[in-house]
Nucleic acid binder design. Structure first.
Lengths: 224, 224
DNA sequence: TTCCCTTTGTTGAAATTTCAACATACAAAA
DNA sequence: TTTTGTATGTTGAAATTTCAACAAAGGGAA
């Protein structure tokens, strides 16, 4: 378990929890580590919402697939990030999304009830973790607001530019990589892949952006 | 302040806080009540995110307006519901939305920092409120997921039916009222009002739904 | 290198949405 | 009752997206 300490120390769930207490905490929480191959699911739609997952290595994608098989990309998760916590904390019976490994990856799963319920050992860290969880869940809210901001645009071009500008802002640079391939980006923007490719081509020819696979560069930020 | 006790007791923020403690809590939190006319804003985009609002009477709408004036409807709030808490808890500087009174309405505003920071009087309820906040913010997450589920559909017809089915499910009846007029519903679904009206007309003629102003009735739940 | 498979780009037709403009219905005020 | 203003419905043309099908490019494995 020790080899994951570096990630766990950076994980916002354990913020302000002393290093020496972390080992005890993980045992108390009955934290367990699982490995996944690319494409495998940690959670599937309609499974009970009991666990909080912490990405240790690799990356995962939160995806929602509707009745007709249409896929919607919600978010990409990198080491240190959590998933499942909102559903567990809201007390819903089943999760409405799937969490898929986008490459070989590892997660730590914790029973969410163990976080909020103080254990018989009277561990001190529970309260701190609840405070942390509140911040994390609130931050997740912002991520969803952001997706809504992007997808509320009416054209593929506007959606794409809105997304790229946000990425540029977050990276602090007009040149950056995104965690999605074309199909995944289309699923995030809620548009057709072919239409997205066409639009990227047009923006490229117009000299607004440069795009090579998942690497983008914005030339004219305001030519939306 | 006493006249609002009934709403406040139902408000999830004060869940499991004794009735006798509520008065003390409100004073400790420096809670203040404000009134608004229809259309007035409690919060405006780009204002600091410090306050948690509790709807006391009337109703409010959470709205986001982009650079070009396109309006996006996020949610409708009725008495007992909160707003602003996610932004305050996530520690963002400014709120990314506006909160507008959709009729004459009253809110109670609380400085969010006062909730998490125990006061010098060593009030007992702070911890309970943080637990409550966590559940509330997590539930907000579900509301956003729901909006994403609806708006991720590709056609106006599918979006509308997805929304109506969700409403029917929440009401526990195929006949119900929605809190939006046509323009507001279009802003929620992220479609054009005229196209929405046209689609409602078509569904009506096809005998799938009945619609009179904001009153809907679904006849054939699965003819999407 | 060649082969194979996946990803990305392209294209044209069909379907859908947006946009602008106007008609109608409804409700409040005069 | 009439007037007035707002909400809703309708319509056709222009713009955009979807869909299906295929082409081109890239990356690994043999």
């Amino acid at each position: 378990m020790e080899k994951y300490f570096e990630v766990l120390c950076m994980c916002p769930l354990f913020r302000d929890i002393a290093h020496w207490e972390l080992t005890k905490a993980l045992r108390c929480l009955n934290a367990r580590v699982f490995s996944f191959e690319k494409g495998e699911a940690v959670m599937n739609e309609s499974e009970p919402a009991k666990y909080v997952g912490i990405v240790l290595t690799g990356s995962f994608q939160i995806v929602r697939t509707d009745f007709f098989g249409n896929r919607s990309m919600i978010a990409n998760l990198v080491p240190g990030e959590l998933f499942g916590e909102s559903f567990a904390c809201a007390g819903v019976e089943v999760v409405p999304v799937s969490v898929l490994a986008s490459e070989a990856a590892e997660v730590m799963l914790i029973d969410c009830l163990k976080i909020s319920h103080s254990c018989s050992n009277a561990c001190q860290f529970h309260q701190q973790m609840i405070d942390n969880l509140l911040q994390i869940v609130a931050a997740k809210n912002l991520v969803l607001h952001q997706k809504i901001e992007v997808t509320s645009k009416r054209t593929t071009r506007e959606k794409l530019m809105a997304y790229l500008m946000l990425q540029a802002k977050q990276f602090g640079s007009l040149e950056f990589e995104i965690p999605y391939d074309r199909q995944e980006l289309a699923d995030y923007l809620e548009v057709e892949r072919s239409g997205l490719s066409a639009e990227i081509g047009k923006l490229r020819r117009q000299g607004v952006i440069e795009a090579d696979r998942n690497r983008f560069k914005i030339y004219k930020p305001f030519d939306v």
